[in-house]
Amino acid sequence: MGGGEWRRVVVGVSGSPGSLAALRRAAREARRDDAELLVVLAWEPPGGDLAHGRSICPLPVADLRRDAGSRLLAALDTAFGDAGPGVPYRGLVVRGSAGRALVETADRSDDLLVVGAGWRGRVCRALFPSVARYCLAHAVCPVLALPPSPLYRELASVRRRVGLRLPLDARELTEGRP
């Protein structure tokens, strides 16, 4: 969609490889369409609001919000370095679940919402709802869900082997690669 069809490109970041890829893609879309980039990091207290409120010694909300802001700045720095995304942008730290925060931020029909859709096993899908699926089901604007890099599965396999202290031959990592 060229020629400024989108006025805003909204992207969710968490610092994960998938969210960083989504952030870089969102910046490209914003440059192409001469749009503003809204970078959103959603946060919740550990265990959620209910557990936080009932905690004997809860962490101060201001500290949690400041930590979320630091994670947002770290994600921007990791994705773009000192050069920045190359488009006008705003960073937003939103208290709440990621899917809801993104859908509520991308609330215009002419927005574009960009999310990373990572590989998720059955257990992970059962315990943690997919942000991408939530956004696809609830957004009032177009949603661009980026699939994970093909290398992501290989990296996860290496992590599992290392974590289980299984033998790993580094030559296996380069087989079939130019």
Rank of each mutant, 00 (worst) to 15 (best):
G2L: 13
W6H: 15
R8H: 12
V9M: 03
V10D: 08
G12W: 01
G12T: 03
S14R: 02
G18W: 02
S19M: 04
A22L: 05
L23A: 03
L23I: 07
R24A: 11
R31Y: 02
E36N: 01
L38T: 08
L38I: 13
A42S: 11
W43H: 04
E44M: 13
P45E: 08
P45W: 07
L50K: 06
R54S: 10
I56S: 10
C57I: 10
V61S: 10
V61W: 08
D63L: 13
L64G: 06
L64E: 06
L64H: 08
D67T: 13
D67Q: 14
L72Y: 02
L72W: 03
A74V: 05
A74C: 04
A75P: 09
F80V: 13
D82K: 13
G86K: 10
V87P: 07
P88F: 05
P88G: 12
Y89S: 14
G91D: 12
G91V: 09
G91Q: 08
V93F: 04
V93P: 03
R95G: 11
R95K: 15
D107S: 15
R108V: 07
S109M: 05
D110E: 14
D111H: 14
G118K: 05
W119T: 12
R120P: 06
R122Y: 04
R125L: 08
L127A: 15
P129H: 09
S130M: 01
S130V: 00
S130N: 01
S130Y: 00
R133N: 00
L136A: 01
A139S: 06
L146R: 01
E154C: 03
E154V: 15
V158C: 11
V158H: 03
R159I: 11
P167V: 11
L168H: 03
R171E: 14
R171D: 14
L173M: 07
E175R: 15
